[in-house]
Nucleic acid binder design. Structure first.
Length: 424
RNA sequence: GGAGGGGUUGCCGAGUGGUUUAAGGCACCGGUCUUGAAAACCGGCGACGGGCAACCGUCCGUGAGUUCGAAUCUCACCCCCUCCGCCA
């Protein structure tokens, strides 16, 4: 959520900043609603002050019959207050509805652009491998090795699910442990294990609702939603809290499965693990002092990169342009890993700063000094990494001519010493 | 799912219609005193919204309602605790 005061005082700047985003956003109607809200507020508060005073006077009078006319008068005032409050509530609801669907301002350092074609490459790491044979796709490798079974997953549930078996299942688990161990022991993150389903308030606080309900899986009886990313439960850990400046930055690492409807992506990435309704992810989340958020985004991105470096997977870092960043983000770096079978880089991590956008929605604040006014923290998060896509990258980059897969050395201790996956 | 108990301004906790502008204590901050500290005493001590400000308004789990007036009465819902049932 954006700051109402800021919009009020910088209306043109706000509109032009939002215009650099891809979607069509209009703040039209905002000023009018805002003014109406304030004039209603002034009126109703004056009446309430009067009512409070008169009620106090009535309280002091022993013989109520002498103040009959005052009581009658207050009855009318109360009715008037109620009418005004109802009107105010409507205006505030409309204002909130408008505000909740407006995306964040792009950060000044976010490149301006319309689509992903305008994203800017920041750096690359490693070089795409040269194969002296034609590299196979991970789905072919997975089926031949008997470690990925898409057909049976479709029988069990439906399209866009996968059944991992044997060394495949273990490799996924090894990656989760490896990533969590790295971030908690080397990068200073606190491990958390969260609920995988959340309520609507949590989903609204991070920005998935109200606009993106069609992307989410919903439960019927309690009105809960399956998380599309650990960002939701982890950011909500501190919802409606006032943190101490001395405890910032707070850094959490969380493994969770993620559930996404992938509505509107029919026909895209239909084969393989790239786009699934359920996938595993290790997520990094930070709550920081606003002064530190730019530096913290660089650090967090570096922590995600470290995973790829240790796995010896070539990748590049892209700065997303204003037209391509997510709803709540003001700045985003995507890490894209090299996939030889597709001869292309594919997103494996997205590291974003949200400024105070989520903190304002979620009511996450801190005090600069012990006695100073609470201010909103800045929130950041990034995948460290998407586990399924990491498994894909390992399978495709580490494949051998005979169809076996070498296990990266840093993972072998997590695989019981296994060095290579062969057909079982 | 059933029965019971409970949710009060950082914490504890009083308060069952009108000096509650929410007692009291703890914690915290400032002052007096002291060589310094502690103790004692005095004062301060929340969030949000509106306003240049004085100040005003809102907030006692949430939402409706009764009333001139609600922390207090009514209804619904949420959460926590205990016991029973079921269960990984």
């Amino acid at each position: 959520m954006l700051d109402m005061k800021f919009i009020r005082e910088n209306f043109e700047h706000a509109e032009s900043s939002l215009a650099t985003r891809n979607s069509e956003i209009s703040l039209a109607g905002f000023i009018e609603l805002d003014e109406k809200r304030r004039s209603l507020l002034v009126e109703t508060e004056a009446l309430k002050a009067m009512k409070n005073n008169v009620s106090e006077e009535i309280a002091k009078v022993k013989d109520k019959s002498t103040v009959k006319d005052r009581i009658a008068e207050m009855k009318e005032v109360s009715a008037r207050i109620k009418a005004l409050d109802d009107e105010l509530k409507l205006v505030e609801e409309e204002l909130a509805k408008l505000l909740m669907t407006v995306p964040n301002f792009p950060h000044p350092t976010t490149p301006i652009g319309k689509s992903e074609d305008d994203n800017v490459q920041i750096r690359t790491w490693g070089n795409p491998l040269e194969f002296d044979f034609t590299p196979k796709s991970h789905w072919d490798l997975g089926e031949e090795l008997g470690i990925l079974d898409f057909e049976r997953a479709a029988k069990i549930t439906g399209a866009r699910f996968c059944l991992y078996k044997g060394a495949g299942a273990r490799l996924e688990r090894a990656l989760i442990s490896f990533m969590l161990d790295l971030h908690t022991t080397e990068h200073g993150y606190i491990e958390v294990l969260t609920p995988f389903m959340v309520n609507r308030t949590s989903m609204t606080a991070t920005g998935q609702l109200p606009k993106f309900e069609e992307d989410l899986f919903r439960l019927m009886d309690p009105d809960y939603l399956l998380i599309p990313t650990a960002e939701v439960p982890v950011t909500n850990i501190h919802r409606d809290e006032i943190l101490k400046n001395s405890e910032l930055p707070i850094s959490y690492a969380a493994y969770t499965p993620c559930f996404r409807r992938e509505a509107g992506s029919y026909g895209k990435d239909t084969r393989g693990l790239i786009r699934q309704h359920q996938f595993n992810k290790v997520e990094l989340v930070k709550f920081v002092n606003p002064a530190e958020s730019e530096a913290e985004l660089e650090k967090l991105t570096g922590h995600a990169e470290k995973v790829l470096q240790l796995l010896q997977l070539p990748y590049r870092v892209m700065a997303l342009c204003s037209g391509d960043i997510g709803f709540s983000a003001c700045k985003t770096y995507d890490l894209e890993v090299w996939l030889p079978a597709q001869s292309t880089y594919r997103e494996i991590s997205s590291c974003s700063s949200f400024g105070d956008f989520q903190a304002r929605r979620a009511g996450i604040r801190f005090r600069e000094e012990e006695k100073s006014k609470p201010e909103f923290v800045h929130t950041l998060n990034g995948s460290g990494l998407a586990v399924g896509r990491t498994l894909v990258a390992i399978m495709e980059n580490y494949q051998q001519a005979d169809g076996s897969i070498t296990i990266p050395s840093v993972l072998r201790s997590y695989m019981g010493g296994m060095e290579r996956i062969t057909r079982c």
